[in-house]
Amino acid sequence: MTTSEPKRRVKVKDASDVIAGVVLFGFSVVLIFYLVPNYINEPPILQSPMMSPQWLPRIVGWLILVFSILLILQGLLVEGSNEEDERTIEKGSPRRFGLMVVALAIYVTLFEVMGAVFCGILATLILFVAHPVRTWWVYSLAFVFPIVVTFLFVEVMNVPLPMMPFWF
């Protein structure tokens, strides 16, 4: 006996959200179940599970997993209107792209040699120049933010970061 009912299909309303969600979902699964357990070593004696070097990467992996599922659901349920879509990509100038690449290259190459604070300040200043920041007081954040982040990593989370060679 055959039925005449048509098969129900799920219509994808925004394919780019679904594709991005699936890619992020795959990355988070690899991060949670393969990279963290196999490549981040835990010391044999831990005082607290939150002191484990695996703690922060696991939290980040689970957050990426949850948000990727939400992104997939958004792509399936919410109609993406082409008019007045805030998510449309506006292509920036080649100068902006070049400065972003320079900031990344400086941060990666000088991180060990010059330290986390100096490289963070320099890379942030270059990024502020790449994305024209018109308010001058915002440039002070380029100095405050890397210092605060380095302090949090070194003093609070006990993550050793390279300091400047002449740092006390």
Rank of each mutant, 00 (worst) to 15 (best):
M1G: 15
T2A: 14
E5V: 10
P6E: 15
K7P: 05
R8Y: 13
R8D: 15
R9F: 15
R9L: 14
K11Q: 14
K11A: 14
K11H: 12
K13N: 10
D14M: 03
A15D: 09
S16H: 14
D17R: 14
D17E: 13
V18P: 05
V18F: 05
V18G: 03
A20C: 08
A20L: 11
G21S: 06
G21V: 02
V22R: 08
V23L: 14
V23C: 11
V23I: 15
L24N: 11
F25V: 01
G26S: 12
F27Y: 13
S28W: 07
S28I: 04
V29C: 10
V30Y: 15
L31F: 12
I32G: 05
Y34S: 07
L35C: 04
N38A: 07
N38T: 13
Y39F: 15
Y39T: 14
I40C: 03
P43I: 09
P44S: 12
L46M: 13
L46Q: 13
S48P: 02
P49N: 09
M50E: 12
S52E: 07
P53R: 08
Q54M: 05
Q54V: 02
W55E: 02
W55K: 01
P57R: 01
P57M: 04
R58F: 13
R58Q: 12
R58W: 09
I59G: 06
G61R: 07
G61M: 06
W62G: 00
F67M: 11
F67D: 00
S68L: 04
I69C: 10
L71F: 03
L71C: 08
I72V: 14
L73R: 11
L73G: 08
G75S: 03
L76G: 03
L77F: 13
V78F: 09
E79H: 10
G80H: 09
E84L: 04
D85G: 00
E86I: 10
T88C: 00
I89L: 11
E90V: 11
K91H: 08
G92M: 08
G92Q: 09
P94S: 04
R96P: 00
G98H: 02
G98K: 01
L99Q: 06
M100Q: 02
V101E: 01
V102P: 01
V102K: 00
A105V: 12
I106E: 09
V108M: 10
G115N: 08
V117W: 09
F118R: 01
C119M: 11
G120E: 07
L122Y: 01
L125I: 13
V129C: 05
V129K: 12
H131S: 11
P132H: 12
V133E: 11
V133S: 06
R134N: 12
R134E: 13
W136Q: 04
W137C: 02
Y139L: 00
A142G: 11
F143R: 00
V144M: 10
F145Q: 02
P146C: 00
P146T: 01
I147C: 06
F151P: 04
F151K: 01
F153N: 05
E155G: 01
V156Y: 12
N158D: 12
N158A: 11
P160H: 08
L161F: 10
P162W: 08
M163L: 15
F168P: 12
